[in-house]
């Protein structure tokens, strides 16, 4: 069994084993452990598919920044290789790389305003040459990070009133 206080989520939320919320969190240790396993599955799958681990981390860092989630952005930034640093910058749009541009556009749209994502947005990924496996992997990465940033934000607010 994992030490739940040594997981990406709980460390980012700033909750240690001696914290007043430690007991409450331990009551849902199975969820914290599955969140950590999901982090590994979305960020560091082997084989990595159409996006490298560093590119996934860069997109995750970008999404954390779009959510103004400083601690998780810092965590993801540490997993990004120099060549991919620009992807993590929300002002960078993919420049002259059409495939990357489409991936970044989709990531930003589904992070900020999933209600506005439609059929055309999936067709745009296909037109950029992204196979169905990678469309689903990208979707899970986006969805997971947007879950994780909200749990971290919620835990921090819980800690603030504990």
């Amino acid at each position: 069994m994992e030490d739940i206080f040594d997981t990406v989520l709980v460390r980012a939320a700033g909750i240690s084993a001696g914290h007043p919320l430690a007991g409450v969190l331990s009551g849902r240790s199975n969820i914290i452990e599955l969140t950590e396993k999901s982090h590994a599955a979305a960020l560091k799958p082997e084989p990595s598919g159409g996006l490298t681990h560093s590119q996934r981390a860069a997109l995750a860092c970008r999404m954390a920044r779009l959510n103004q989630e400083v601690e998780l952005a810092y965590h993801y930034e540490s997993m990004v290789e120099t060549v991919d640093v620009s992807i993590a910058d929300p002002r960078f749009d993919g420049a002259d790389n059409p495939r990357l541009k489409t991936i970044i556009r989709h990531t930003d749209l589904v992070t900020r305003s999933p209600k506005d994502a439609g059929e055309d947005d999936i067709r745009a990924l296909e037109s950029a040459g992204i196979p169905v496996e990678d469309i689903v992997r990208l979707s899970e990465l986006i969805a997971f990070v947007n879950y994780q940033v909200r749990v971290a934000a919620g835990l921090r607010l819980m800690a603030a009133v504990s």
Binding site: V24, R28, P114, I122, S139, A143, Y147, G154, M158
Partner: peptide, 24 residues
């Protein structure tokens, strides 16, 4: 607090599920 934690989790979980169901 244990109820609030569950609310944070279920709300956040649908930040995940909605981004799959509604997009795919």
């Amino acid at each position: 607090m244990d109820e609030i934690l569950d609310l944070v989790l279920s709300t956040s979980l649908f930040g995940w599920a909605n981004r799959l169901m509604h997009v795919l």
